[in-house]
């Protein structure tokens, strides 16, 4: 009887594994198969030329660079806010009710759909009369990924063993020194992973910047210029009735996937590198 139970559960686990891996593979396969023919060198080296959206010359360098700008800027802002926030939550607020409330708020904030962050930013833009731009794209994505990042920093920092902080205090370190040089050092692999995941979320999100970043065929030269992004490039090209343009949407998808893949490889390498120092 118990052996049957075991077999059934094992089968269920294997099936769920296949569902997860299978659907991921299916998505990648469809994107690659449909996009590969359109993935030419000019796709990644040129901005759209005349008639690009009708299937003629050009590429999506504007959106690649745009996405990198937006995601990098947003990630930097999010780090600058989320890291001190997580430090404070752990080192000073401790287990107080206040910290619990903050964590609950963060959890809600991470559950809010990115579209709503976009709508919120857009309403502010309307109120102050701002135009769609790189700056607003960055701010919107930052708004969306900061709670994610704060929560993930908080999680890893919470796992730092008390004895490490104790060791640091016993050497005469202040709370600040302890959190900067000991706690963060121990949590570094997790912090890096969190950053790269947040960057991935930021670069892949279309809904939040739909209204705030704008779209343009050129590469922005200042924060005030509108900016094209990969998710929106995919969105617009997919909507075209012309098959060649649709194929380019998938090719853009491949590029986005490749960026995310590179990120996750980089994150693994870095994590491994800093894991060595972690005290178990």
């Amino acid at each position: 009887m118990r052996r049957i139970e075991e077999a059934v559960f094992k089968a269920l686990m294997v099936i769920s594994l296949f569902i997860v891996l299978g659907s991921l593979l299916a998505v990648i396969l469809v994107v690659v198969i449909r996009g590969a023919p359109a993935l030419t060198l000019s796709m990644v080296t040129q901005v759209p030329q005349g008639g690009f959206y009708l299937g003629k010359e050009g590429g999506i360098l504007n959106a690649i660079i745009g996405s990198l700008y937006v995601a990098t800027g947003a990630t930097l802002i999010a780090i600058v806010i989320a890291l001190p926030f997580a430090w404070y939550l752990n080192q000073y607020a401790g287990k107080s009710r206040f910290a619990d409330i903050f964590r609950a708020i963060l959890d809600i904030a991470t559950g809010v759909p990115s579209l709503l962050y976009g709508a919120f930013a857009f309403s502010i833009m309307l109120a102050i009369g701002a135009k769609t731009s790189l700056l607003w794209g960055i701010l919107t994505i930052a708004l969306f990924i900061t709670p994610l990042l704060a929560r993930s920093f908080d999680e890893v920092i919470q796992t730092v063993p008390f004895k490490l902080k104790e060791a640091s205090f016993a050497l005469g370190a202040t709370r600040l020194e302890t959190v900067l040089y000991v706690v963060s050092r121990q949590a570094l692999p997790g912090i890096l992973t969190g950053i790269l995941l947040a960057f991935g979320r930021g670069i892949g999100d279309a809904a939040s910047i739909l209204f705030t970043a704008g779209y343009t065929d050129s590469i922005p030269t200042s924060l005030g210029d509108p900016v094209a992004t990969l998710p929106l490039a995919i969105f617009f090209q997919l909507g075209s009735p012309i098959p060649a343009v649709q194929a380019r949407a998938y090719a853009s998808g491949i590029i986005l996937l490749a960026i995310v893949l590179i990120l996750s490889v980089v994150s693994r390498v870095l994590t491994k590198r800093y894991m060595k120092y972690v005290i178990k």
């Binding site: 004895k163 490490l164 104790e166 060791a167 640091s168 016993a170 050497l171 000991v182 050092r185 121990q186 120092y277 972690v278 005290i279």
Partner: peptide, 12 residues
């Protein structure tokens, strides 16, 4: 200075 019961090297 203090040394504790179980070794507690810092993560570095």
């Amino acid at each position: 200075g203090m040394i504790s019961q179980t070794p507690n090297p810092l993560p570095m």
